[in-house]
Design a protein around this nucleic acid. Structure first.
Length: 131
DNA sequence: GGTTTGACCATAA
DNA sequence: CTTATGGCCAAAC
């Protein structure tokens, strides 16, 4: 109804592709968070959708999206059950010289990507919410 | 068509 | 510090 017109939705068909496009902007050796990606796409509240989008990555698309550079806002590798994935992620990040503390935490203050290359995004990705 | 399945974040107490 | 809760589902089967 009209509510959709007043406040355009951020999540919708093709959301996965947008998430992938944003994550491709993160360079080697840097990391981002689910919340940051969600914020760029329009709202920090859709962080969970970002996680869902990543979980839907196949082995094929995983080679074109640096999914391992996405960690949670506390600086830890997210793992809800799937420990094998977290292990793989740790290995990939370590290979990029991303260091972890004794507790397994990344220094977000130092390595969090600022997304100053957003201009490389296809315009359609940011959609109607883009400034 | 329904059902299932999932990598989170901010806030409050 | 911990725990609980609400928050825009989309995609695959």
């Amino acid at each position: 109804m009209a509510t959709d017109l007043l406040e355009p939705r951020i999540v919708g068909p093709g959301f996965h592709a947008k998430v992938h496009a944003v994550i491709r902007l993160v360079p080697q050796g840097r990391v981002t968070t689910y919340g940051d990606v969600a914020t760029i796409l329009g709202s920090p509240r859709v962080a969970r959708h970002v996680g869902w989008a990543l979980s839907a990555l196949s082995e094929g698309t995983a080679t074109t999206v640096p999914w391992h550079r996405v960690i949670n806002s506390r600086g830890f590798i997210a793992h809800r059950g799937a420990h094998w994935r977290a292990t793989r992620q740790y290995e990939l990040l370590s290979a990029e010289d991303v260091r972890f503390s004794e507790a397994g935490k990344v220094d977000l203050g130092r390595l969090r990507w600022s997304f100053d290359n957003l201009d490389r995004l296809p315009k359609s990705v940011l959609g109607p919410v883009a400034p």
